[in-house]
């Protein structure tokens, strides 16, 4: 139980002090205020960073999920020689420190004279998110029998229609889960963005910038509080979708 307190303490600190009417994050609390939130609404830099993060997050989520579907389908539906090696290869970003991925991409872009921008951030995030997407979708694909796809082919559908009429509806919860997961990862990612962003700012970069100014501290707490609440909502939504997916899976049992 103490461990749970340990897990939740930092998350609780953010909202608590975001309503505190003081420049400093110290006890005792000095009174309730919403001014830090009001300050957020006026911040121009925050708005553009938020929009940048959303752009990158959505593109990365869609692209990595598409790549994940390809890979998961290949891995679960075909007997391939040496596939283990290739899968391990795709999984590499999971086990190398992000900083190394970040600097190698930075060098690559610099040497090939690609200008740093949101696109380069997106490429970095794509590397990071694809393995996650693949893992989520592999587990979903393994969960349903290949005979559904065979039945569709047997009833006269080609691969394309089989995918849209059978595979996609059945793995849909996995696809949604993958989209949410990869979006969250990208939205939250700092290290790669730090190296690859150029002049554009993403939300974590913006926060990093704010941390240097003590007077911006309370409004950063307010921002953190908002993010905590929003991500909680998203996670519960994802779980509800996943549950409806469990039912579909349950139906497939004989």
């Amino acid at each position: 139980m103490l461990y749970l307190v340990f897990l939740y303490a930092p998350v609780a600190v953010l909202p608590l002090f975001s309503f505190n009417d003081s420049q400093y994050v110290t006890f005792p609390l000095l009174g309730f205020t919403l001014k830090w939130y009001a300050q957020l609404a006026d911040s121009q830099g925050l708005h553009s960073a938020l929009i940048n993060s959303l752009k990158v997050g959505v593109s990365v989520a869609v692209l990595s999920t598409v790549l994940g579907i390809f890979a998961a389908k290949a891995v679960t539906r075909y007997r391939m020689r040496r596939s283990g090696l290739l899968i391990g290869f795709i999984m590499v970003p999971l086990v190398i420190p992000e900083i190394i991925l970040g600097i190698s991409l930075l060098m690559t872009f610099s040497i090939s004279e690609v200008k740093l921008s949101l696109v380069t951030v997106g490429i970095g995030h794509l590397m990071l998110c694809t393995p996650f997407s693949m893992l989520v979708l592999i587990s979903r694909m393994e969960g349903f029998d290949q005979s559904y796809e065979e039945a569709s082919q047997d009833l006269g559908e080609n691969a394309w229609w089989t995918f849209w009429r059978v595979t996609f509806p059945i793995i849909l919860p996995g696809v949604v889960a993958s989209l949410l997961l990869t979006f969250t990862i990208s939205f939250d990612e700092f290290v790669l963005a730090f190296f690859l962003a150029g002049t554009d700012s993403t939300l974590p970069l913006h926060i990093w910038g704010q941390l240097r100014f003590p007077d911006k501290l309370p409004s950063t707490l307010a921002l953190g509080a908002i993010i905590v609440v929003l991500s909680t909502v998203v996670i519960f939504a994802a779980e509800l979708i996943r549950r409806s997916g469990v039912q579909v899976g349950g139906k497939s049992k004989v």
Binding site: Y8, Y24, V25, T232
Partner: peptide
């Protein structure tokens, strides 16, 4: 859930908690 919030903010929260004028000390 705590881990779905920004990594940066969590680290920052610890700084606030552990700091000289931080939550624990004050």
């Amino acid at each position: 859930i705590p881990f779905w919030t920004s990594y940066l903010l969590r680290v920052f929260a610890w700084k606030v908690i552990l700091g000289y004028n931080g939550v624990i000390n004050s």
